[in-house]
Amino acid sequence: MSHPKSVHPHNAEARLEMLTVINRAIAGAAPVEKPAYPRPQPLSAAEREEQFRDRILDYRAHYTRVPLAELPQAIAASLGRAQRVLVPAGIPADWLPAGLEQLRDEPPLSHAQLDRAEAVVTGCAVAVSETGTICLDHGAEQGRRALSLIPDLHVCVVRENQIVQTVRGAVERLGLAVRAGRPLTWLSGGSATSDIELVRVEGVHGPRALHVIVIAE
């Protein structure tokens, strides 16, 4: 594929005109004072974990909480009979069940190869208890975006200290990754649609099943 770098000549003209019109439109506008961000009553770590669990189950995703030592068994249980499990490069070896048929993205797999994977195991960057949201910043434990998108089953491991209470808290934690230019994906339950007569259907294009495993600390 070619990469057309030249910008169309009309573009400079459109840009100049738009900026001129905008400047005229906002000339003399008073600066805006932003109020402080409201903060809720803080929850304890145990309450956060409980709230997170409640939200994940409300999205009809699976939820398990295990000590690190039992993580391989928990992952094995979530994977069930899934073959060809995608494992990002940064997943710690002691997370994985013995004898797992791993599919590595090195060298990068084609879309067609990814489509033959049945499951993926990832970590996450941060999670939000108030909304049951898991945020990926596609670091080494999560892999590039396509890995957690194409397989039908996503097993996502969350460390307890990654769970924050609020959306605002998660946004603050993600600041470094975004400023480093990393893409983000936020997951709240599995893919869903209510487009036909408002009947909720789970599992449209994204992974149809989401299993969340929290490592107890």
Partner: peptide, 20 residues
């Protein structure tokens, strides 16, 4: 959608090498 959070939010900045 009257949800606490909708299922997926994507954020990207320009082009990420090797991703997308």
């Amino acid at each position: 959608t009257a949800e606490r959070m909708n299922p997926y939010n994507s954020f990207w900045s320009g082009v990420t090498e090797g991703d997308g």
